[in-house]
Design a protein around this nucleic acid. Structure first.
Length: 432
DNA sequence: TCTGGGGTCCTAGGACCC
DNA sequence: TCTGGGGTCCTAGGACCC
């Protein structure tokens, strides 16, 4: 008998099923087998669906107004997004996974790649079931696990695990038979990294299934499209080439934007909204211990409808890196003055911070307008104090240009938000 | 009436320098 | 009046992801 094959490196992709909906159901056992949907920030579209909701034919991303009838008819329970809850549950899931595997790459709020070295297929499958059971028992969130030698194959295996109940949520393509099977069974659109555009091109080139694409000439594809497609083909063939340098602590931009509840026309209202986004974005910047050097704002009308359309953005390069909200509020005014046009119904605005540095790296410069060290240190102290006071309720202390009501009540009001079960004492579930 | 929000990576092309 | 090549840096835009 042959010795079982030992693989140098194996990825286990652990992915939470219907994550946002699963989080909501955790605290609402009465909804266990009921159709549930979670809506986007503005209650605009469906972003997460339970199995029951999927079965009813409600598609992902559908505008809520288009499915009002179904919501009533089938008693679909809808929730506005409750991100602080999801992030909290996500952290618990990731911490638990990490206790079983030190080499963990959190890829998104609901999935992580775990990698193991020198392991057989049987051992990998055992680990997968152990992880799945641990997350179910300790946290109550169902997960699926895809096992492969590359991330792209692990993603595909994960789909396969979920689609077919007989797999019990775990599928390995470490063996050649299973690898061939998922390649043959999946159209190219199912492959991680192949979007709608690339699908169109590749179909024209005659590649319909993952199997056909896996046989393509990577040199030709790289020349015609990009290195991304070539890498994907390699990954389908067990060649590991997507490295894991991504780290959420290392993000290189912060974007904060919202769609307004009602259209906004005046400069003052736009400015007020932007100031609020600015304050939130700067708080996040400080929480990452970063300073930014570039700052962009954008405003736009709706893409839809027959009203006049306008979109514009403006960017400023700061004289010195900053995380001081006041600096950005001042810049916001200047930038908005440069792009604001009267007579348009604005539906969205946002701010973007990027070009980060880790420290302010104070450097005396005779010619630039860099403030002296003391001014900068005071800025840091003031912002820390602001963040400390605002830790519980984000709007306890705010700067003059912000309007306390703006964020939720005036511009953006989610209607079906679940309580903050895990982060607010007032919202703890009651036990009778 | 109501059409998400927040990210990353890659590439082409312009500006500028020698 | 004609007309470089090579290198770097930056930016805008495209494509993709959850």
């Amino acid at each position: 008998m042959n010795e079982p094959k030992v693989f140098d490196k194996v990825y286990l992709l652990c992915d939470c099923n219907n994550f946002f909906v699963s989080c909501e159901k955790l605290f609402r056992p009465d909804l266990a087998n009921r159709p549930v949907a979670v809506l986007s920030n503005n209650d605009g579209v469906v972003v997460s669906r339970s199995y029951e909701t999927k079965k009813l034919g409600i598609p992902m991303g559908v505008p809520v107004f288009k499915i009002q009838k179904e919501i009533k008819k089938y008693h679909i329970t809808t929730f506005s997004s409750n991100f602080s809850l999801y992030i909290d549950i996500s952290t618990r899931v990731m911490t638990t996974l990490e206790s079983y595997c030190k080499d963990l790459e959190v890829y998104s709020v609901d999935e992580a790649f775990l990698s193991f070295e020198n392991i057989t297929e049987e051992e990998a499958i055992q680990k997968a079931f152990m992880l799945k059971n641990a997350i179910a028992r300790k946290i109550g969130i169902p997960i699926g696990v895809g096992i492969a030698r590359t991330k792209t194959l692990a993603k595909l295996a994960n789909h396969y695990a979920k689609q077919r109940p007989q797999n019990k949520g775990v599928f390995s393509v470490l063996n050649e038979g299973n690898r061939q099977r998922i390649l043959i069974d999946n159209p190219i659109a199912e492959i991680w990294g192949i979007g709608a555009r690339m699908e169109e091109h590749l179909l024209e080139d005659g590649y319909a299934t993952a199997y056909e694409l896996s046989k393509a000439d990577t040199g030709v594809l790289q020349k015609k499209y990009s290195i991304v497609v070539a890498r994907t083909v390699n990954e389908l063939n067990n060649i590991d080439c997507i490295d894991s340098s991504t780290n959420p602590q290392n993000q290189d931009q912060i974007m904060w934007s919202r769609t307004f509840k009602d259209r906004v026309t005046s400069f003052d209202d736009l400015y007020e909204a932007l100031c609020n986004y600015c304050a939130d974005a700067c708080a996040k910047l400080r929480s990452l211990n970063r300073y930014a050097r570039k700052f962009t704002i954008f405003i736009r009308t709706s893409y839809f409808g027959d009203k006049a359309k306008y979109a514009n953005d403006a960017t400023i390069l700061l004289d010195y890196p900053s995380a001081d909200t006041r600096v950005y509020l001042e810049a916001t005014k200047l930038l908005l003055q440069s792009i604001y046009k009267e007579g348009y119904e604005y539906m969205k605005a946002g701010v973007l911070l990027y070009d980060f540095v880790e420290s302010r790296a104070y450097q005396a410069d005779l010619f630039s307008q860099t403030p002296d060290k003391e001014t900068l240190d005071n800025s840091d102290k003031l912002m820390s104090a602001l963040d400390a006071i605002n830790k519980g309720d984000k709007n306890t202390v705010y700067l003059g240009a912000q309007n306390k009501l703006t964020k939720e009540e005036k511009f953006n009001a989610p209607k079906h938000k679940s309580p903050l079960y895990t982060s607010s004492f007032d919202d703890l579930p009651e036990i009778f």
